[in-house]
Amino acid sequence: MNLWIELLLVSLALTNLALTSLCRLETCIRVAAAQGILLGLVTVALHSPAISLHMLVLVLGIIVLKGLVFPWLLFRAMRQARVRREVEPFVSFTWSLLIGTLALPTAMWLSSRLPAAHPSHTPLLIPVALHAILAGLLLIVSRRKAITQVLGYLVMENGIYLFGIALVGEESVLVDLATLLDVFVGVFVMGIAIFHINRTFDHIDTDRLSALKDWPS
């Protein structure tokens, strides 16, 4: 059983690394969807012999939202904004992969300093959660396109969720449901916002939004 949990967690870490190094938005969204589904499976595996009903509902919610609804919304936003790939990010793909890799030892070190509430869980859980948070942050600060930034936000939320099940366990269902709702609203709003940004400015490069003017110069 432990081996399966570790396999799932390692795959999660690999999806984090993949997201930091891929340039095609389509593939990025697919990987993020896979990460959402993996997250649901990890939850099932952690509580596996005796999983309660509301945990099962939460897992189903996660898989449906993060594996199907978010990708669908993001694909829609991608089509409407007519962007296909992330071009010239602030930090190049090779460097973000290197930074993403270095984030892993950092996460390991950080988690070794944290006292865990449930030490019975696998020791990989908190490092992978921290790694997801760091990778999400990296995506948010280093990419130009609004869609990739939304993906970074999603990855970060995934990390926070993992951290939640590692620290609190079963009692966190309500909190998790609330976060899930928040993220849903976030992605939904961003989907619409991306469309409007694109319609007004003909692109979704966020760095150029800082130079807004009333008239074209």
Partner: peptide, 14 residues
Amino acid sequence: LVCAGALAVLAIVL
């Protein structure tokens, strides 16, 4: 190739 190196680092950390 950086990806290959990253995989090796991941394995070391694991």
